[in-house]
Design a binder for these strands. Structure first.
Lengths: 231, 231
DNA sequence: ACCTGAACACCGTTCAAGT
DNA sequence: ACCTGAACACCGTTCAAGT
């Protein structure tokens, strides 16, 4: 590599470090992300990074927040569709960088990126007529689901044919010990991902919209929870 | 330590390795779980473990499945309460071993432990009158939520006062850029954990029960999704 | 078949020393 | 204030060698 391609060493900064981290993740997944590798990519020693970043965990939180800025809004859609579209965009952002979803599931996002995501979803739910308390807690439910689903998908992708193996195991389930499984195993794994994801979002939004908050002081044995469903 | 306390080295086996792993996790969290530490605890070299276990990922899957066997059923409760109680028991199992939830979120559980959990939940939902297709996909939704919530809780526990910091950041959110957040931030973090968890389970179960599966071939622009909610 | 020691190729983080 | 090399205390996994 000639000198001219790298005219001057890029000056270190929190931003460069975060971007380099995201690049490494995109290229090689979780295994490719380390302080030492970021340092090497930036042509410096790993110790230098600690001037800009508290530690690896902190860096991970910054990376998620930076990625979250890429989530796209669709402000012209009807509110419920907007919520769903934003969530699909969030899913895409996570799936594009293998490993990022796993980080997101274990690291609390904070900063403007996650604030923006929350704002968009809150706005959509409120516009759709969801009551404020339910909308606030609902946003939590929705983001948690998408994050977890993305983490699951990317983790399985890196884990050989676990899904197929599990499907086989469920199909061979002992009918006496696991009658329901034996009966319904074909439904558990059925359907293409997008359709299931769509149904999951619909279910979550329906549940959020129509489920009242439990009473402040829950009686010890409130056995009629089940009857108090939607409507 | 006198010889008498350790009369003979326990013979290695997959079971002993899994149990030792769970013990280490219980004592010291994720950071305390490593092949080398399990080997040391069993008074052998780490290479010996590979006779019984393919690799660390495989071991993790075995550990989750073993823990899942501890989930308690409550067969005498009304179906919906049974489902909720089983899920609370699952949450407890995950929270008892710091780090296990994080593993569960990233590793596909398989084996009799996870099959049992699925069986219990399927049985409960079907008894509650939920249609088979929705029950099958619903079990997925429910377990994913509990796993993710447990992972979130344990991760935050090990991460200083992230929650408080985030709460502060949201409270100071710019009113122009984040009007909804500024308006509702007090609701986002409000309420004790158990009450929120209870509401989340209610919402999920309501959504699962009352949301029809999307049509097989989804039209590109099906904008009336939002209107098609419960009833 | 099972077990071992030693090696290989990595980690995050700290710290004294330099500029 | 920023950057560095070297060190510390770890990792998972493999493999030739032993029993």
């Amino acid at each position: 590599v000639s000198r001219r391609d790298r005219p001057a060493k890029a000056p270190l900064s929190r931003e460069v470090i975060v971007q380099t981290g995201l690049d490494l993740l995109e290229q090689g997944g979780l295994a490719n992300l380390s302080m030492r590798k970021i340092a090497t990519a930036l042509d410096t020693g790993s110790a230098s990074l600690y001037v800009y970043v508290k530690d690896l965990n902190h860096l991970r939180a910054l990376m998620i927040d930076a990625a979250l800025e890429e989530v796209q809004d669709s402000p012209d859609l009807p509110p419920v569709d907007r919520v769903k579209t934003v969530l699909r965009s969030y899913l895409t952002v996570l799936l594009d960088r293998p490993g990022l979803a796993g980080i997101a599931a274990l690291t609390m996002a904070r900063g403007t990126g996650s604030m923006r995501l929350y704002e968009l979803l809150l706005d959509g739910l409120l516009d759709a007529g969801v009551r404020p308390e339910r909308a606030a807690w609902g946003v939590d439910l929705l983001t948690l689901h998408v994050t977890a689903k993305a983490a699951e998908l990317t983790a399985w992708r890196d884990q050989g044919d676990v899904v197929g193996d599990t499907e086989d195991a469920f199909a061979r389930a002992d009918e006496t010990a696991f009658p329901r499984l034996a009966q319904l195993h074909h439904l558990l794994f059925a359907g293409p991902g997008p359709r299931r994801f769509d149904w999951a979002l619909n279910s979550l939004i329906n549940g959020i919209t129509h489920t009242p908050l439990p009473p402040q002081a829950t009686p010890a044995h409130d056995t009629d929870d089940g009857a108090r469903h939607v409507r």
